[in-house]
Simulated assay, not measured.
Amino acid sequence: MATHVITGAGSGIGAAVARRLHERGDDLVIVARDAGRAREIAGRYPGAGTLVADLANPDRISWALGKQALPERVDSLLHIAGVVDLSPVAELRPPTWHAQLNTNLIAPAELTRLMLPQLRTVHGQVIFVNSGAGLSAHADWAAYAASKHGLKALADALRQEEHGNGVRVTSVYPGRTASPMQAKVHSQEGKEYRPEGLIDPESVATTILMALDLPRDAEVNDLTVRPGR
């Protein structure tokens, strides 16, 4: 039975992945920003473990996890949490940059560092749920796209570093997916949010499970998912 450490399991793609893994009998360890949120999300998945760490404050993640029992086995580390705040560069101030870089890039790097010993032991896998913005940047997306471009660089470097240790690394680049984050994006863009015109989170979850379940003689490096309608 595999054990998966997952961020962003509260909604959207993360919730779809967590539910699918739980339904097939895998063990989950939910990472959440505070104890109440951790209990609330884990309560949806009987038997799930929890880790409390605020991804918005990556400098404190090591300290926080040092006071908790880390799972002895980690078959996969799934980075699905993310934040977005659109603004033109001329109006972006440091707090907005820090918020997105911390949660979307630095926190995944730190969590990965802390989980690598367990991942190496079982030849596990790290999956970074990136974004189309991690491949190209557009007006008003500078801070978010920078964090996601950085996440691609993190994944590419980690893949080369850990290949000899048997750790697989996959980046997934979904297009616009129906989720609370996308509802916020549409609001900031002044557009009507119509989830039926976007990718279903279940479809992205299917691609993530495919990468996880791939036989060990192969590795999915980069996986782009785009709307089919």
Score class of each variant (00 low, 15 high):
56 A>Y: 04
24 R>K: 09
154 L>Y: 00
152 K>M: 12
182 Q>K: 04
21 L>T: 03
128 F>H: 15
27 D>T: 15
137 A>D: 07
116 L>Q: 05
192 E>L: 13
221 N>M: 09
202 E>S: 12
111 L>F: 05
137 A>K: 07
103 T>F: 01
31 V>D: 03
26 D>P: 07
137 A>E: 10
147 S>G: 00
195 P>T: 13
218 A>V: 10
157 A>T: 15
122 V>M: 05
19 R>T: 14
128 F>W: 02
154 L>V: 04
36 G>T: 07
28 L>I: 11
10 G>F: 01
119 L>M: 04
33 R>K: 11
50 T>C: 12
18 A>V: 03
106 I>W: 03
119 L>A: 06
102 N>D: 15
130 N>D: 12
116 L>R: 05
149 H>E: 04
30 I>C: 06
87 S>I: 00
153 A>P: 10
94 P>C: 00
202 E>Q: 15
59 D>C: 10
181 M>G: 09
123 H>W: 02
9 A>C: 07
111 L>K: 02
52 V>A: 01
117 P>W: 04
226 R>D: 13
91 E>R: 14
69 A>E: 15
108 P>T: 06
139 A>K: 13
125 Q>F: 10
71 P>H: 01
13 I>L: 10
112 T>R: 01
168 R>L: 01
62 S>C: 11
119 L>Y: 07
67 K>V: 10
180 P>W: 10
181 M>E: 02
183 A>C: 10
221 N>V: 13
90 A>G: 12
55 L>D: 03
20 R>Q: 14
133 A>M: 11
123 H>K: 15
181 M>W: 07
119 L>R: 00
211 A>F: 02
184 K>N: 11
53 A>M: 05
197 G>V: 06
131 S>L: 03
79 H>T: 01
145 A>K: 02
194 R>N: 13
207 T>P: 00
177 T>Q: 00
225 V>N: 01
113 R>T: 10
101 L>K: 02
38 A>T: 01
195 P>A: 10
181 M>T: 05
85 D>N: 13
110 E>I: 13
28 L>P: 01
220 V>I: 15
189 E>R: 14
210 M>G: 14
115 M>Q: 07
214 L>V: 13
80 I>Y: 01
131 S>Y: 06
119 L>F: 02
228 G>S: 14
157 A>K: 02
222 D>W: 05
106 I>G: 00
143 A>L: 06
11 S>G: 03
59 D>F: 09
45 Y>E: 04
216 R>V: 12
210 M>D: 12
75 D>H: 05
113 R>C: 09
169 V>T: 03
136 S>G: 11
151 L>A: 01
98 H>K: 13
61 I>H: 00
185 V>W: 04
65 L>M: 08
171 S>F: 04
174 P>W: 07
184 K>H: 12
76 S>P: 02
187 S>D: 15
39 R>H: 14
125 Q>K: 09
